[in-house]
């Protein structure tokens, strides 16, 4: 006997993600899922964002890594609450891991939750975690062809931050091709060239972020 099922395999994850978002909403926490390949500058972006915004808003961080607490220690030095998730080999954060991490945070004391996903351009795009906005940090040394190679990731996000823009003179990175490719896959996306070290574009990123949060930039 054949039974029609038509059930989404990721529905269990999606349901937990919905619960996460409801919990965040209840506590007025705005959550941003930050994704990128390893070394693109996720942690640098988080550190720079904390330094420039911590007097204005209360920030919390969830650090997702396969192993180690190197990033959590760096972020912790900035004096903000941070929870480290070690996925133990897992290639992405899922809704259940975020649910556990949220249980270890005092959400009433946080306005903005920055979630650093595992460095990977494939799997994090497929798993909802309950965030409000998704941001991709791409970087010039990775090359301008990345939107063609990882279309689902570029399609999923609300903003693309092109980091290490200060290195562009030394690379054969074509910003025109990159921007057109990104817009082709995802028309509504904002592409913001930045440098976490040089400071270029960071104010524009922060304005975008504050507007998404419904605050004055």
């Amino acid at each position: 006997m054949e039974i029609k099922v038509l059930k989404n395999i990721l529905s269990a994850n999606d349901e937990i993600a919905e619960r996460n978002r409801a919990l965040l909403d209840k506590n007025n926490v705005f959550a941003v899922n930050i994704m990128a390949s390893p070394g693109a500058g996720k942690t640098s972006l988080i550190l720079e964002t904390i330094r420039r915004l911590k007097d204005k808003i209360r920030i919390g961080v969830i650090e997702g890594d396969i192993t180690s607490s190197v990033d959590a220690e760096k972020v912790g030095k900035e004096g903000v609450p941070v929870v480290q998730i070690n996925t133990g080999g897992g290639c992405h954060l899922d809704a259940n891991m975020i649910q556990n991490a949220l249980g270890n945070m005092t959400l009433e004391d946080i306005d903005l939750l920055l979630i650093e996903n595992v460095g990977n351009l494939v799997c994090p795009a497929e798993f909802t975690i309950g965030d409000h906005k998704k941001v991709l940090v791409s970087s010039t040394p990775e090359g301008h062809d990345k939107p063609f190679k990882y279309p689902l990731m570029f399609h999923t996000v609300d903003a693309v931050l092109l980091n290490k823009i200060d290195l562009k003179p030394y690379l054969d990175f074509d910003l025109e091709i990159f921007s057109q490719a990104v817009k082709g896959i995802n028309e509504k996306v904002e592409v913001i060239p930045i440098s976490c070290i040089g400071g270029q574009g960071i104010e524009r990123w922060l304005s975008w972020l504050l507007i998404q949060m419904g605050r004055k930039p």
Binding site: M1, E2, I3, K4, V5, L6, K7, N8, I9, L10
Partner: peptide, 8 residues
């Protein structure tokens, strides 16, 4: 990503 049907 769906389970379409099962044969039992």
């Amino acid at each position: 990503l769906f389970v379409e049907s099962i044969e039992v």
